[in-house]
């Protein structure tokens, strides 16, 4: 069985980048200086992931999971909304009546700096984080983005789906069938992952496996791995380090879950964070990622 390691969604900014973003907001540094701070942090993230097959830029310049799409489509960022049961917030996007978008390439250059693995909002979560966006619209937009990223060498796409699992909403998964079919048509060879976090994935798995995805991501701070059924030929993305808590995992605390998962014979395994890493300070996030690399190599 192939075992990979990946980031999950938005990664923590380093302390120097944090200071630079604050300084930029207060007009204390220029756009160029801010960009240099980003570049330094991107390089650090590349170094951290050196040798990994699944590499991401950590979405360091994303404000939240949907905001970059405002720039692409002209949608307006709305009021701050609590991001699930966390002390973080996002802005719901308000889409105009007709969905149009600008040129993908320059936009994607800004928001997908490097990597082989892209994180995108899953169609249902996208509609829940926006007003006036249909599942079909979300799928059409994502299809364009996926199509472009394929040309740049991305081969693995994680569609982040916290809403359906938080709501325990199996119907939402059924409703995404045509959206995922459209996405799959655009990228028949790509690896698709439907990534759940902030809820117990087990009850939703039967519906999730009906979608044309290669793997499902599960948040092990909510999910008992013993309850997971994995059909032949499908993989799992295991959120096996808690990205909402700074306590560093040890081999002992992950041993039992890993043993159970291996006994289910998934086609491949991706070891990752339980949710986005940005809930952690950078040093802690880096330590958790290194731990994933360690256990993947055992």
């Amino acid at each position: 069985m192939d075992v990979f390691v990946s980031l999950n969604g938005m990664y923590s900014r380093g302390e120097a980048l944090i200071q630079a973003t604050r300084d930029f907001d207060r007009n204390r540094i220029t756009q160029e200086e801010l960009e240099r701070a980003y570049e330094t942090d991107y390089r650090a993230l590349q170094t951290l992931q050196e040798g990994a097959a699944l590499v991401s830029d950590g979405l360091l310049n994303w404000q939240d999971l949907v905001r970059p799409f405002a720039e692409l489509t002209g949608a307006q960022p709305g009021p701050l909304t609590r991001y699930f049961e966390t002390n973080t917030f996002y802005r719901r996007l308000e889409f105009p009546q007709s969905l149009i978008w600008g040129k993908i390439a320059p936009w994607a250059e800004r928001y997908f700096r490097f990597g082989t693995m892209a994180f995108l909002p899953s169609p249902y979560t996208f509609t829940r984080m926006a007003e006036g966006l249909s599942l079909e619209g979300a799928a059409a937009l994502l299809r364009e983005v996926v199509g472009h990223l394929l040309t740049r060498g991305y081969h693995t796409f994680s569609f982040q789906e916290p809403f359906a699992v938080y709501e325990g909403n199996e119907q939402a998964l059924r409703a995404m069938a045509s959206a995922f079919t459209a996405l799959r048509d655009a990228a028949p060879q790509a690896r698709f992952i439907l990534t759940f976090y902030f809820g117990d994935a087990a009850p939703l798995l039967p519906a999730a496996w009906d979608l044309p995805v290669d793997a499902v991501g599960v948040d092990l701070t909510f999910t008992d791995v013993a309850q997971l059924d994995v059909p032949q030929g499908r993989g799992l993305m295991l959120g096996i380090v808690d990205t909402t808590n700074s306590l560093l995992e040890t081999p002992e605390v992950v041993r039992e879950a890993l043993a159970i998962v291996r006994s289910k014979n998934p086609a491949f395994l991706i070891l990752s964070g339980s949710a986005d890493f940005f809930f952690l300070p950078r040093d802690v996030a880096d330590a958790k990622y290194r731990f994933l690399r360690e256990i993947a190599n055992r």
Binding site: F222, D224, D242, N245, T250, E252, V253, A257, I260
Partner: peptide, 20 residues
């Protein structure tokens, strides 16, 4: 709620019924 827990959660297994 606004703090991490590196004390009470020590040695708590992840991804198992007992851990939850």
């Amino acid at each position: 709620d606004w703090s991490f827990d590196e004390y009470y959660l020590q040695r708590t297994p992840i991804g198992t019924a007992e851990g939850l």
